[in-house]
């Protein structure tokens, strides 16, 4: 599945982002391919969030280039990014727990008869789409009228991912999707990620702290520390020890074990 000959869906080249005198990103380059999960690993404050915000149009990079499907692109707003197919699923998922699955799925992009905001909703059609899209990535919802608040954390994650894909995301950025979830639900989310990967045409950037989760689904790794890439490679190239060492920001795990002992 991992083929370096294919064209990357999204590619950054020497991305630099400075906030005043603080350098958040110092020349980050990475390539993300369709049908691949690219794990972005690093400690807190390493610059992962700044990187994904630059990719999703929230921040504009100070220098460096972003290529989408080989074309150089600039994002002035999150809308620009979502128009070229970059869908970001943030930790808070942007869901309204009090309304139904369908109303959340189509929030802000409702299907309706007639033009204008007073258009009548095509509820039945939206119900069908919401159920089908969620079923495609492995979650069966019986009742599309069910309030999102009554769903499990994993199901909510699936809803947010299905929504992003349905509305044209080719690059899916998942911001710590497994944090704050129970064990079973974490597995549920990983299964969902695997299903999305199997769709074949979507590139996934997975931000996580959890090495085990990354190893379960990722095809390619990029390790970031203090705003720079300190290592990258495919799942074949990297051994467990390498991953652990790079995740700790390059320190030898052996040393850490000694210190902790």
């Amino acid at each position: 599945m991992v083929s370096s000959t294919a064209q990357p869906l999204i590619e950054t080249h020497d991305l630099v982002k400075k906030f005043g005198s603080f350098t958040a990103l110092n020349g980050v380059s990475l390539k993300v391919f369709p049908g691949e999960v690219h794990a972005l690993l690093g400690d807190n404050g390493a610059g992962k969030s700044t990187l994904i915000k630059a990719l999703s149009g929230v921040h504009q990079p100070t220098s460096g280039k972003i290529f989408v499907e080989g074309k150089e692109t600039r994002f002035n707003s999150p809308r620009d990014a979502s128009e070229v197919g970059i869908g970001t699923v943030y930790q808070d998922l942007a869901l309204n727990a009090l309304t139904s699955v369908t109303r959340n799925f189509f929030l802000g992009r409702e299907m309706k008869f007639g033009k204008g905001p007073f258009g009548i909703l095509k509820m039945n059609q939206m119900h069908d789409i919401a159920i089908n899209e969620m079923a495609k990535i492995g979650i069966k919802i019986e009742d599309p009228e069910q309030p999102v608040g009554t769903m499990s954390g994993g199901q909510r994650q699936t809803l947010a991912i299905a929504r992003a894909i349905y509305f044209g995301a080719k690059v899916l950025i998942l911001d710590e999707p497994t944090s704050a979830l129970g064990q079973l639900q974490q597995m549920e989310v990983l299964k969902t990620i695997k299903k999305v990967k199997q769709l074949g045409h979507i590139a996934i950037i997975l931000i996580t702290h959890n090495e085990i989760h990354a190893r379960l689904v990722a095809d390619r790794y990029t390790f970031i520390s203090l705003g720079e890439v300190i290592g990258s490679g495919t799942s074949k190239d990297l051994k467990g020890d390498d991953i652990r060492r790079l995740m700790a920001g390059g320190a030898e795990v052996g040393d850490l074990a000694k210190e902790l002992a």
Partner: peptide, 11 residues
């Protein structure tokens, strides 16, 4: 309950 605006009001 039936229009887009309604969904916007709820959210």
């Amino acid at each position: 309950s039936k229009t887009q605006v309604g969904n916007w009001i709820y959210s």
